[in-house]
């Protein structure tokens, strides 16, 4: 294959290097407003869902779970400029471990989550160590294969997963005596988790670790020349994002109370990529906005259910061609700076 230094184009690479907070005071004021805008929109949507409850609350809860998943994907794709089509595998492992351990073995949710996380990280390490040495389509296909293998195992291993039938009766989220029941409590817990995730990512990006990832994203050769252990940082980024995916899987099964293989199919990957591209690759708020917008949009076109996947696919193609940096990118462009 051709010797391309990175798998993303420069304009999709990690922002936030250098050109920060420059320009006139008026301009930086505008930037501040526009930078806060996505957060305000997100807060408004979640607030409205909490206030109105019912169906809207369910949709927003899904969106927040996806926000966790996409935030993880963004660490690997947005900040490290690598690609994985198999993150649904880690969500599936987290989700199924939680489902099986809390129902059949009656573990508390937190312990089951830890077990699922350990399983996901073990698989991510096992897969990541050899494949992350490879570039471009090998890595893509290797990860895609993992996603499909895990899906197939979920279907076939009926004694544990109950195949297509799925597992139902999964208890709701809880720690010790506290148990999140009702729309508002679930929304509150999910919002806290999403914010925590965003906080971790925001801190990470400015840290030594985050800067090393940006260097890897910019050019692996240059990063290596600077003394960065490229393979190790890529693996760390992969593990971190797999951890987010596993968490999302666990949250999903507890909130819905039911899991089947379809939940974590290829559909999940396409949906997550659409969210990531709508929200904006390599930004902190992008995954959250993307997840909310993409989850709410189809609800306004109910009755077009058959056309949903068609719509996602077509939208993704258009985004990739015409707006590779997504909505967050448009806001940044308007604000005349590079990072949100």
């Amino acid at each position: 294959m051709t010797n391309s230094p990175a798998t993303t184009s420069p304009d999709a690479g990690p922002p936030g290097l250098g050109s920060e907070a420059e320009g006139t005071p008026a301009r930086s004021g505008l930037a501040l407003v526009l930078g806060a805008l996505p957060w305000l929109v997100a807060a408004g949507l979640v607030g409205a869902a909490g206030y109105l409850g019912g169906y809207l609350a369910t949709i927003v809860a899904f969106a927040l779970i996806y926000a966790v998943f996409v935030t993880g994907l963004n660490i690997f794709m947005g900040f490290t400029a690598q690609v994985s089509f198999g993150h649904n595998a880690f969500a599936a492992i987290g989700g199924y471990t939680s489902a099986v351990l809390t129902t059949t073995y009656e573990w508390p949710p937190l312990a089951a989550f830890a077990a699922g996380l350990a399983g996901s990280l073990a698989l991510a390490g096992l897969i990541g160590w050899p494949t992350l040495r490879l570039k471009g389509h090998y890595l893509s296909m290797g990860t895609l294969a993992i996603g499909l293998i895990v899906y197939e195992i979920a279907v076939q291993w009926e004694s544990v997963t109950q195949g297509y039938l799925g597992i139902s009766g999964i208890p709701s989220l809880g720690i010790g005596r506290f148990e999140a029941t009702g729309d508002r409590q679930i929304l509150a817990v999910l919002t806290a988790i999403v914010l925590l995730g965003a906080f971790v990512v925001a801190r990470m990006r400015r840290s030594r670790f985050g800067r090393a990832l940006s260097a890897v994203a910019g050019s692996e050769e240059a990063a290596r020349a600077l003394g960065i252990d490229v393979a190790r940082y890529k693996l760390a980024s992969f593990l971190l994002s797999a951890g987010f995916a596993s968490l999302a899987g666990t949250l999903f099964v507890h909130v819905v109370g039911y899991v089947s293989p379809e939940v974590f199919g290829l559909h999940m990957v396409i949906l997550a990529f659409t969210m990531l591209y709508v929200g904006g690759l390599g930004t902190v708020v992008g995954p959250i906005i993307g997840a909310l917008v993409i989850s709410l949009l189809p609800e306004t076109f109910r009755g077009f259910r058959d056309y949903q996947d068609l719509g996602y696919g077509a939208a993704l193609i258009l985004l990739l061609i015409y707006a590779p940096r997504g909505m967050a990118g448009l806001i940044d462009l308007a604000a005349g700076r590079k990072a949100s």
Partner: peptide, 15 residues
């Protein structure tokens, strides 16, 4: 980049 191409063709597959 390569993966955008792969993603776009995968999306085309779905369409």
């Amino acid at each position: 980049p390569v993966f955008v191409m792969i993603l776009a063709t995968l999306a085309a597959q779905i369409v």
